[in-house]
Design a protein around this nucleic acid. Structure first.
Length: 196
DNA sequence: CTCGCGATATTCT
DNA sequence: GAATATCGCGAGA
């Protein structure tokens, strides 16, 4: 018997760095037609609002793209990067505070698979996990607390503090000293994280 | 194995 | 017009 508890609004109304760490070991559930895809989160990055040069909301600016980040915690912020890859973010904190957590890698839950190597390759990167979960702009601005298509679950997995590794974020060298913040978190020794 | 680069579309200057 | 929170391929070592 697997415990399946949908994550509620309160979860998202806490400090963003805390949420980024707590998300490890939680599950994303995505409903496509009759099928349900589930994947365990193994890697995240925090983006802290107006003061974080690497964040889209740096300086408190609002654009058509990033306005979703200003919504109440629990919404999905999905946008296109490099014209090809969708990125999944979870909005945190109250309305008006533009903070979010980028989901960088997940472990797909599969009943059977032939090649373990392929299994790992399915979702070990922010663009790939969106492809696997069939996430695109139609899911942007989706409220994950209410949604019937896409939400998060706690399946009772406990992650010990010693299993969480903090490191620098990836792909944001343009952000100067902000690029050095240890705001990327992943599960130690997990094969599904995007990079070592 | 590592490295370099092109794809491709949305956004901002 | 330039930049971008990436990916996958192909060349070379």
């Amino acid at each position: 018997m697997i415990m399946r508890k949908k994550i509620s609004r309160e979860f998202y109304n806490r400090p963003t760095l805390t949420i980024a760490k707590d998300l490890l070991g939680k599950y994303l559930v995505r409903k496509v037609g009759r099928k349900e895809l589930a994947a365990k989160i193994v890697e995240t990055e925090a983006y802290i609002g107006p003061k974080d040069k690497a964040a889209h909301a740096y300086g408190g600016k609002v654009t058509n793209r990033n306005k979703v980040v200003y919504l109440e915690g629990g919404h999905a912020y999905i946008y296109l990067c490099y014209g090809i890859n969708w990125m999944l973010n979870l909005v945190t904190k109250k309305e008006g505070i533009p903070e979010c957590v980028l989901i960088r890698a997940v472990e797909p839950l599969l009943e059977n698979y032939k090649d373990p190597k392929q299994h790992i390759q399915l979702a070990n990167g922010p663009g790939k996990l969106c492809r696997w979960l069939k996430l695109d702009k139609t899911l942007n601005e989706e409220d994950l607390v209410d949604s019937k298509k896409f939400w998060l679950e706690d399946r009772g997995e406990e992650i010990k503090k010693s299993q969480i590794v903090a490191s620098k974020r990836i792909g944001i060298d343009y952000a100067g000293s902000w690029a050095d913040k240890p705001w990327r978190f992943y599960l130690k020794d997990n094969l599904f994280v995007s990079r070592k």
